[in-house]
């Protein structure tokens, strides 16, 4: 097969039922968005796993780099006061 027919890669997100967000299911190749949706239905919802599908060209995903994971996420590391469990509340105080 000539390289000119290599289809782009798409990321597939499936909403399993109403009220839940779409989650990443996997990826697939398809020539266009319409076919990507159809292929995603056949590939990722053969057992009624979804009520809604998003397809996104993989090339459009911007990802953080694993190399900078420490410095990139570090600012949250020393801020335990952002969590409710940081605070001491006397026994017996309710609704807090």
């Amino acid at each position: 097969m000539s390289s000119s027919t290599e289809w782009p890669l798409w990321e597939v997100f499936v909403r399993s039922r109403r009220g839940l967000s779409h989650t990443h299911a996997g990826s697939l190749h398809a020539p266009d968005a319409e076919m990507a949706l159809r292929n995603a239905r056949d590939l990722y919802t053969r057992r009624s796993e979804g009520v809604s599908i998003w397809v996104v060209p993989s090339a459009q995903v911007t990802a953080s780099s694993p190399d900078e994971k420490d410095s990139f996420f570090e600012p949250a590391g020393d801020k335990p006061y952002r969590h409710p469990t940081f605070y001491e509340i006397p026994e017996g105080v309710k609704h807090l």
């Binding site: 390289s3 290599e6 289809w7 782009p8 798409w10 993989s58 459009q60 995903v61 990802a63």
Partner: peptide, 30 residues
């Protein structure tokens, strides 16, 4: 495969067209 690719080329607006090879992969974000 050729027909589907030709159809996609004809009907997909350039803004939505993805490059032929993936530069990134959403797996990386998962």
């Amino acid at each position: 495969r050729d027909a589907a690719a030709a159809y996609a080329e004809k009907h997909t607006a350039p803004a939505h067209a993805a490059p032929r090879t993936a530069a990134g992969n959403g797996e990386a974000t998962a």
